[in-house]
Design a protein around this nucleic acid. Structure first.
Lengths: 133, 133
DNA sequence: CAATTATATTGTAATCATTACAAAGTTATA
DNA sequence: TATAACTTTGTAATGATTACAATATAATTG
């Protein structure tokens, strides 16, 4: 399913920019920031405004087509993989890695709480950086 | 162990403000923001500067005496409980709840990764708010 | 098709948490 | 006491995000 179909299925008017922004996030596993998305799409869309990237990612996130990652204290990042998984941020190279979380804690303390979103964020030094120190 | 002893044990010069800020965070389970700490301590310290609260919390966090919580996309919060546990933020009332995380995922994908910090953030609607809707 | 309305995009200005930095105050040390 | 080191303060700068009004584009109606 491509961006056009996804947007239509979610009743979001599929403008050219929306399709491109959604498809960029879906096809890049790098958890890009607003600036990264903007810089990349600017190449083919010279009049693109950063505000449009902000607006569009907000709409996509509100509709659960992408996920907002706040592991970086500075900038929000976006993830096209909305299935539950953890994120590891390397303090050294800045890369964000995905990992599976097998055991989702069933917390008795949260009985009768409505959980809408779960984030698991690890921070440290990645294998690649550890080996090259 | 009070703030003075903790600071001494960690070789942080125990100024009056540092003791007060540390003790405030240790004794309040509300995960206060900078503004909340500042507003509260200002009552007894009329010349207190917000910069001091920022500086001090940074020092305390660097020394792992308190933990930085970034579950709120807007403001950082601080937690005096540095033992591993999860945080639940209620979108309704804004309260942050602690909960135990029994099963820390052992992720084969992170083999040879050095994990320095783990955060588990849930967001949703708390029991209290659910009952009063 | 033309006119009108609704929506998308843009650019600039505002907001707000945080940081940088220099000056002033305080404590420790010689 | 004098000097150096550190703490605290206040103001200015930074930078991500949002607000908002103007413009452009697309959909709808007559």
């Amino acid at each position: 399913m491509d961006g056009l179909q996804i947007l239509n299925a979610n009743k979001i008017r599929p403008s050219g920019l929306r399709i491109k922004i959604l498809e960029y996030i879906l096809s890049h596993k790098t958890h890009p920031t607003i600036d990264e998305i903007y810089a990349e799409l600017l190449k083919d869309n010279p009049t693109l405004s950063k505000t449009t990237v902000y607006n569009t990612t907000r709409i996509l996130a509100e509709n659960h087509l992408i996920k907002t990652i706040t592991i970086d204290g500075q900038q929000v990042r976006y993830d096209g993989n909305v299935a539950f998984h953890g994120h590891f941020r390397c303090k050294n190279c800045g890369r964000i890695y995905d990992f599976n979380v097998n055991h989702v804690p069933e917390e008795a303390e949260l009985k009768d709480f409505l959980i809408e979103n779960m984030d698991v964020y690890y921070v440290g030094s990645c294998k690649n950086c550890n080996e090259n120190l």
